[in-house]
Design a protein around this nucleic acid. Structure first.
Lengths: 237, 237
DNA sequence: CGGGGCTTTGACACGCCTCAACGATTGTGG
DNA sequence: CCACAATCGTTGAGGCGTGTCAAAGCCCCG
């Protein structure tokens, strides 16, 4: 499970966004000592609701979903995890949700206890983790308003814009750099479970956005934003 | 705006749940010096989306809502703030959401800069704030699954159980202490905006829960959980 | 006694879900 | 290289749950 590859934190591709991004050289040296890499296959669970989690980790590459299932099997995706996102709860040994890889995944892991010890010593890690968590909280609440009040068309448009903004952030590009093709990392079913819809409705609304000339499609998982302002309008953003 | 009343932190009613709950005597003494109390009238905004917030605060008593409104006026409530809940974002001067008092409110306030300085010095405050934020994040994600996948009956039942659990926590009672009457701190419209429904649907589903003998009602804002297990079932929890 | 705000209830409409069939793509084995 | 199956996506027809609109009830307070 533990991958032999050891990249120095200095050369880490997510160094400037992750939980370690405020660290100085001494702290990075320490992280280098206690970290380990791990790869996870598409579809595998990184953790399950109420299950013990011995590690916390950061996604180096790949995509994962935070999901919840109701007793009768209905599912929803309540979070999308992309490179530089943090997984785990210092101070809690159990996760509240399932976490599932949606592509091959490379993780930078710490023993939970090591990481908790680090939190006691490093204000930099502390501050950054708080920042990350508050950003996630804001994002979750924004999404609550999408699920609570938007129509199916607006939800799908909002999701595309969400991916678009994230893509821009990860690639340090400006939001309005439109000509870029956008990889949708989820199937229609996963999108539906994120949007509180059925996969059929998601598909219909994607077709609609295409007919309305707001996006171009290159296969079901690649889109280009054709009319950014129009898409913002359609998302009721 | 600033209220003269000064209660010692030692005698504060929310001392054991709030952001200060891990503090030792020295830290409390410091908090005592930099805090101030403020009362807010029902209906007033404590902050608005994109507006500067000079203070962070903790609710001592009363109820507030975190809300978002779409450009066309649709509204949703994305968070319910009760005594001991924390308001504000150290590290960010602007709120993402509107925050609105839903009853007379008593707040324990700190200048944002004072509080940020405190975070640099006190691991206790740091740790507790992280804990609070992570709990809120889990709660928000749980609620996302309610909004994404539950029917109107299930949502209303879930909301009652949510109030019930919160009530138990604040009063340090066990969850199954059922005979207690429960004060619903929101109007039907506020509930609807929390549940992603219309006020009419909320009203219908409340009547339904009463007809099904899962709750007793004493006016529109007071209920008693009559069949806890049945309610859990009805909530698809 | 009357007015205003909130809640409840009813009738109807509409958006999304359900069920079903078809299409596109990819990988596999003959 | 093609036949075939498997998986995923698209499209269509019809039903159901929740929204919309309207009216009446309740309660507080003047």
């Amino acid at each position: 499970m533990v991958d032999g590859t050891r990249t120095s934190c200095q050369r880490c591709p997510i160094r400037h966004n992750a939980v370690c991004c405020l660290c100085d050289e001494r702290e990075l040296a320490f992280l280098d000592r206690i970290k380990s890499y791990r790869t996870v296959a598409n579809g595998e669970y990184l953790g399950r609701a109420n299950q013990r989690m011995s590690h916390v980790s950061t996604i180096v590459s790949g995509v994962a979903l935070i999901t919840r299932s109701l007793p009768d099997g209905r599912q929803s995706n309540v979070g999308l995890l992309l490179p530089s996102d943090f997984i785990g709860r210092p101070g809690r040994s159990r996760s509240v949700f399932d976490i599932r890889a949606r592509s091959e995944l490379l993780l930078c892991c710490f023993q939970r206890q090591d990481f908790e010890a680090l939190l006691q010593r490093s204000l930099h890690v502390n501050r950054r983790l708080l920042e990350i968590t508050m950003d996630e909280l804001d994002a979750a609440r924004l999404w609550m308003s999408v699920l609570g009040r938007k129509t199916s068309s607006e939800r799908v448009a909002s999701f595309i814009l969400f991916l678009f903004a994230n893509n821009a952030r990860l690639n340090e590009r400006r939001v309005r750099d439109v000509d870029q093709k956008l990889w949708i990392p989820l199937s229609r079913l996963d999108m539906a479970e994120f949007l509180g819809l059925t996969l059929e409705t998601v598909s219909r609304r994607m077709s609609e956005l295409r007919r309305d000339r707001l996006i171009d499609c290159f296969g079901p998982r690649v889109v280009r934003v054709r009319d950014y302002a129009g898409l913002v309008q359609a998302a009721a953003a």
